[in-house]
């Protein structure tokens, strides 16, 4: 094993040359090349944003809708999403992504429109816009990344921070008596008649990544058919840096702590069918 660990680049390249199966014919998976820029992302190692960007780009390419989709980036870690997604995008003020998306969809109803928002953006400062966008049943996709913390500003308590969970502004753990309980906004919007499809997914395991991709695809297909209302896809995600864990630990912690509180699955399917 030790010997193998010592494997250096040169040796590795040699190995590829010797009996490489790495040919175009044999390629079974590659990051999207058109809807995603070929560039390194600024996200911390192990952050779920990168996976969600990638599968979103995959869906856009597979559906062939690059020229028909417009996205709205939030304020938060994914504020620079437009540097990675090679599609027309607008960067909205903190919390207002769904309002900006409403404006875009209303004047360009034939286009696909989505907002990409974190939990602070969507469930704290932007709660009003989120609820009313969903209540009006705007025919857009809201992609909600929930990692229970304000990542970009350095790990402050978010509306979705778990009870007892430590953050820089709940250094002794979230005390629900004084700080309120975590807001399950996805459950809340599922109650509104304006939403068509509400689901909660994650991207911490290969199977979950597949399911989330499927959910995004379904949401965009519903939008195309225009027969439902707002599609709301929550992705429960991690924040290794601010949770102060390794990426692997953070996914484990997420599975053990976040997922029991934010269980995965469809909350609402089109035509008002609740789970």
């Amino acid at each position: 094993m030790n010997e193998k660990r010592m494997l250096d680049d040169q040796h590795f390249e040699q190995m590829i040359e010797e009996e490489s199966i790495c040919t175009t014919d044999n390629k079974v998976y590659e990051a999207p090349l058109d809807a995603l820029y070929d560039t390194a992302m600024h996200y911390c190692p192990g952050c779920g944003h990168g996976v969600v960007h990638r599968i979103l780009a995959e869906v856009i390419e597979e559906m062939g809708i690059i020229k028909d989709i417009i996205g709205v980036a939030p304020v938060g870690c994914s504020v620079l999403a437009y540097n990675y997604l090679n599609i027309d995008m607008s960067e909205a003020a903190h919390g207002r992504a769904s309002a900006a998306a409403t404006g875009i969809k209303r004047v360009l109803p034939e286009k696909y429109v989505f907002s990409y928002q974190g939990d602070g953006d969507l469930a704290a400062i932007g709660t009003g816009e989120t609820i009313h966008t969903c209540n009006r049943g705007e025919n857009i996709l809201i992609l909600f990344i929930n990692n229970g913390i304000y990542g970009m500003t350095g790990g402050q308590m978010a509306p979705t921070t778990l009870p007892g969970m430590k953050s820089t502004t709940s250094p002794f753990g979230r005390d629900v008596e004084t700080m309120g309980a975590p807001l399950k906004i996805t459950d809340l919007v599922a109650q509104l008649p304006g939403t068509a499809y509400v689901t909660r997914q994650s991207v911490h395991k290969p199977g979950n990544v597949r399911k989330t991709k499927k959910a995004i695809q379904k949401a965009l297909e519903y939008q195309k058919n225009g027969d439902g209302g707002t599609c709301f896809v929550e992705v429960v995600s991690n924040c290794p840096s601010n949770w102060k864990m390794t990426p692997v630990q953070s996914n484990k912690w997420m599975e053990e702590n976040m997922l029991p509180f934010y269980p995965l699955g469809d909350l609402k399917k089109p035509n008002g069918k609740e789970k």
Binding site: A99, I104, G128
Partner: peptide, 16 residues
């Protein structure tokens, strides 16, 4: 739902 939302709808739509 508010002036905050309306100006941001204007922002979104004006971008088109």
């Amino acid at each position: 739902e508010s002036e905050v939302a309306s100006i941001n709808m204007v922002y979104g739509a004006a971008g088109t």
